[in-house]
Amino acid sequence: MTGELDAAGIKEPRLREAYARCRQLNAEHGKTYFLATRMLAPAQRPAVHALYGFARFADDVVDVPPAGATPADVAASLEQVAQALGHGLDDGRSQDPIIAAVVDCAGRFGIGRDLFDDFLTSMRMDLTVERYPTRADLYRYTRGSAEVIGLQVLPVLGTVTSRAEAAPAAAALGLAFQLTNFLRDVAEDYERGRVYLPLDELAAHGVDDELIGWCVANRRTEPRMTEALRAQIAATRAVYAQARPGIAMLSPISRPCVRTAYVLYSEILDRIEAAGHDVFSRRAHVHGFRKATVAGAALAKGIVARRLYRGSPAGAR
């Protein structure tokens, strides 16, 4: 971590500690993302850790509240996070380590406040919205919970086109990753009282809340649920197809990282299919050997790219 912070020009001791805390969160909770981050140039990694760390921090406020916390308590805690971030962005610093790192990152890479506002809007939705009648309703949520993550990371990765040209694909990739999570975590989300699949599309296959509950309770799928999940996987693959051209728009030193995340996360859909669409008795994941194979090849390409483009800024445009 020291070498990464040195490469990024982060010198102030408390700020270095803040970035180190974000890196720890990424390593503990975002294993696929963390693995992909290792493909980046050292100077890029702290910023990605900071963005992930803040997103995880805010998400945990909503999803992992202290024992005995009421919905009003959780809402108040989330507003404290929002206010602390706002003050931090105004002042350019914060006493909270997670916010201090993300504020510094936003300043270094010109990440707009509107992206953080959209993110926090979606976090607030999680406090009150438990079902999404249509895909349009779901996408109003994922705008802040997924698409803006891709847009926040884009200036860190750098582009060979204008940032505006690369933005739609970056947003689509963030969306594809989250839709994949929704499919993998149907049971876990249901047990938290939420369904992140469009209800009208489920209903087209005869799936309602009662049937999802039955699948969760019995830890197995059912033919109507299987058909609904098959359709959701097809819709998610279409989003990955929208995102794929964006990889070539990135700085060459960033492409191996994003391609690794793209491949490994999209293969979770393959694992769901291979398990007969049973997302109720097991959690689909890509096995370690496959991760090592993909990451090893990407790491080699990343090293070559960094040597070829040594001295080139991450964000060319």
Rank of each mutant, 00 (worst) to 15 (best):
L5G: 02
D6P: 06
K11H: 13
P13R: 07
R21G: 01
E28Y: 10
H29Y: 10
F34P: 00
F34D: 00
A36D: 00
T37Y: 03
P46I: 10
A50P: 06
Y52M: 05
V61F: 07
P66W: 13
G68L: 08
T70F: 12
A76Y: 00
L78H: 04
V81L: 09
L85M: 07
G86S: 14
H87A: 13
D90I: 04
G92H: 14
Q95T: 13
D96H: 15
A100I: 06
A100N: 03
G107Y: 03
R108S: 08
I111R: 05
I111N: 04
M125P: 02
D126W: 04
D126A: 12
D126Y: 04
T128W: 07
T128M: 07
P133A: 15
T134R: 04
G150Q: 03
L151W: 08
L151Y: 08
V153N: 04
V153K: 00
L154N: 01
P155S: 03
T159K: 05
V160M: 07
A164Q: 06
A169W: 03
A170R: 06
A176E: 09
Q178D: 08
T180P: 09
T180M: 11
N181E: 09
L202W: 05
L202K: 05
G206V: 09
D208C: 08
D208G: 13
E210I: 09
W214T: 11
A217L: 14
A217I: 07
A217V: 06
N218E: 15
N218G: 14
R219D: 01
R220C: 12
T221Q: 06
E222A: 12
P223L: 06
T226I: 14
R230D: 08
A231V: 08
Q232R: 14
T236C: 15
V239C: 14
Y240M: 09
A241H: 12
P245D: 05
P252T: 00
I253D: 02
S254H: 00
T260D: 01
I268Q: 01
I268H: 03
I272A: 02
A275H: 11
G276C: 02
F280W: 15
F280C: 10
H287E: 14
R290H: 13
T293S: 12
T293M: 11
V294I: 11
V294D: 02
K301D: 02
R306L: 03
R306F: 01
R307K: 10
Y309I: 07
R317T: 00
